[in-house]
Each structure stands twice: as C-alpha cells, then as structure tokens.
Design a protein around this nucleic acid. Structure first.
Lengths: 218, 218
DNA sequence: ATATGTGAACGGCTTCACAGCC
DNA sequence: GGCTGTGAAGCCGTTCACATAT
C-alpha cells in the first residue's frame, strides 16, 4: 500500500532492477530469489523481504518473472517516466556528470546546467544541454517545474545555491559539495562526498603490516 | 582501544574533522558537543557517542579542545600522512576525479592514472600525473606498494580491472562503476553509484501533488 | 552550573525459520 | 521437492537520561 519503503531497500531495489535488465537482455525470463540475490550481492532473505514491499509477485516453487518484476520496481521507485533535473556548477565534476550517461539509463534527463560563467562553459563542454547563468536558476526551475537538482558547486557556494533552488520549488538535491546542507522539512538531500568516501575506505583497509599480531585467527 | 569503529561512525568522524578545521581557521579553540554537532548536522548525543570510540578527550563542564580533537581523529582514521592511490579509467568521471582537489585536502595523493589509451588521455588532461596503459597496473602497483585504488572504468571492465588490482596488492577500492564487485575477503570496496543515488533521491521526493489513490494488490 | 561519558532503552533493518503454495 | 512470503528473533546503531567531573 502507501507504506514508506526504507531508504536502503529503495537503493537495493534499484540494484535489482539493473540486474534484471541484464538478465532480460540475456533472454532469461525467470529468476529465483537466490540467483538474483547472488547477482546483486545480497542475501536471498533480504531480497525477498525487499520484494515484500512491492506486494506478491513470485510464483512459489518457481521464482520471479523477470519482466513483471522490472515493471513493478520501475513503477514503484521510478515515479515518472523521464525525470527532468538541472545541474548547478559545471566545473570538473559537473562537466563529468553532464556527460555521464548513467543518468539517462536510469530515467533521468539533465535539461539544463547553470554556472557563473555560462558562455565559457558552454563552449568548453560543447553539449546540447543549455548552459545558463546562475541568476537564471529560479526562472528556469519555476517555469519548467523542475523538482530535482544536482549540486556540484564549490563548497562555499553550496548552501546559497541550495537556498535558491529550494526557494524556486526544488525538493530533491543530489549534493556533491563537501558541506552539510541545511534545508527545510520536505526537501530531501542526498550527499555524495568523494573525499570522505575515500577516507572511510582507508580506515577499513588493513595497515601494511604493523609488526603486531595480525587480527584474530579465523 | 583496538576496537573496530562502525562504518557510519568513521564517516561522521571525518565530517567532524572537517568542521573542526573550519573552527580552527576561525581561531576557535574550544567547542561543546552541541555546537559541533549542529555544524556537522547530527545530534549531540550521537557525536559524544562517536567520540567515545576515541577515548576521553573532553573537559566536563567545558567542551573539547579543537586542536587535540583534530589530532586524535586524524590519528585514528587517517592512518598515514599522505596515502598514495591510483586511478583506473580516465574517462569523463575519471578525469574529473583526477582534477578534484578534495582528495589532497584529506590526505590522499593520486600518484598515477591508467587507461586503455594513455597517450591520448595524457594529452587531453594535461596534468602532472603520469598516465600509463592498463597493462602497467600490476607493475606500478606492486613496485610502489599501492594499497588503494579508485575505479572509474565502464561497467563491463570493472570486475576484470578489480581482479588485476587485487592480484597486485590493492586492498581498498573506491568503485564508481555501476556493478557489484566480487572481491576476496580482506579487500574492502566502497561503491559510489551516481545513477542509483539520484534514483534513490527521486523516490523520497514527494510527487508533484497527484492526490490520486493508487493501490491494487495486497 | 555546565558539559562530558556511558549504560540502558529504543527503533529499525537483517537474518532466520518455517508455513504456504506451485 | 522447490521456492516464495512472512512473522519472529537477532543485531546494530541511535537516542535518552543521568551519573560524573570540573
């Protein structure tokens, strides 16, 4: 029903969808929870529990229909067909994101980009996406009823740009700036902090070979 | 002491460290848990619990010493001073990551990049970082005892490159490819899936205002 | 008086185990 | 027999509340 699906489950559902797509391309039309779970890197029980949020779609003793399952997932997590998003900050990272084709594959379209120096940027990236000045954000976002934005501006500008976006109707921000954004209730922020991801990784990487006793025997 | 710090706590410790750096720049030398928590976007109790993993460093009735705290965090999560990492796949995203200055700020240095077409890439990016062919990965990684790698190759190549990296001694991979990497025990993978982050965001963004009641099964 | 440190309660996500259906 | 669907149990991280230290 109208239940809210946990954040982590939503994320995994996207993974399943991607795996299913691959299976479909290979002509497979039925999968068991264990097979799909293995491909997705999770436990079968986890996967079945996740699917529980969608209703009942498997056939006991057999498995799931690849096509039907994809349909249901897409309907549940991919609200619209092709979601329009804007991107603010066309620097190194922003440019790469504009060229990244993974977004389109998952049903998103970057319909406009904004930068402080739009003319120079437009020339540099040479893409079909319109590049406008940051002072045009509000106008564009309002008129086109954009609800999601990708934020890739330098840290010091992030909060200010986020404020603008929210003021004009954006309710979802994918933030790549290394700052904690303050936004009003109802606005969702998903942050990807590249440096912190690397830092986190480094902690869990075992040190080279500090003379001490290697961790427990297993 | 030698306890293992939870993944999420490690992540937050990095955030605290970044906030502390800002405070230090502003000449502040003491903070309370509540003040720092607000800056980091977490609850004071959460922050104190996180600091519990590091030992006791606050002064009751007063707060924490900014300098001392930074020192302890750095010592705990930033194992070495300047960690060398390599980057594989210098496409759109890879190029942006090479130019990203956030890594250096947090103590990482990309010492080499690898691509299928190194000559063309080297010319295009025009950076001081050496760009080598992917067949040179093993040699370079082994000789320089590299332990961490950033993976930004297209999906179909990811697993194969990961295998090479691991075979040569890499034990930590920051993966930007949209695939689930299979790695042996002892190797840590941290994945950032750009499209999935956006997809996840879109689910939690409230629909425009379609007040329709949509439920059938269940 | 004020702010830390921490055991205990709480809540949410994962995993298990088995009932139910093909 | 095989596999899904799901309540129950288990686990882990977060939040609370208060003892403790300055």
């Amino acid at each position: 029903m109208g239940e809210v699906i946990p954040k982590k489950a939503v994320y995994r559902l996207s993974i399943y969808h991607r795996c299913l797509r691959k299976l479909e391309e290979n002509g497979v039309d039925t999968v068991s929870s264990s097979a799909l779970a293995k491909a997705a890197g999770v436990k079968p029980s986890q996967l079945r529990k996740d699917f529980g949020y969608l209703g009942q779609f498997g056939t006991r003793g057999l498995g799931y229909s690849v096509g039907a399952l994809m349909e249901v997932i897409k309907k549940t997590i991919g609200r619209a067909k092709l979601q329009p998003v804007v991107l603010v900050g066309v620097g190194n990272l922003g440019s790469a994101l504009l060229r990244y084709d993974g977004f389109k594959k998952e049903g998103f379209e970057v319909v406009a980009a904004f930068d402080l120096d739009p003319a120079q940027v437009a020339e540099r990236i040479a893409l079909d996406i319109p590049v406008l000045g940051q002072d045009k954000i509000c106008e564009f976002v309002s008129e086109n009823e954009i609800r999601m934005a990708i934020l890739a501006v330098p840290g010091p500008f992030a909060q200010s740009v986020a404020n603008d976006l929210v003021a004009c109707g954006v309710v979802g921000i994918l933030n790549f700036s290394p700052v904690i954004l303050q936004v009003p209730d109802g606005v969702v922020v998903n942050s990807v902090d590249l440096a912190l991801e690397l830092e986190q990784l480094s902690y869990f990487v075992r040190p080279p070979e500090t003379g001490e006793i290697e961790d427990d025997a297993k």
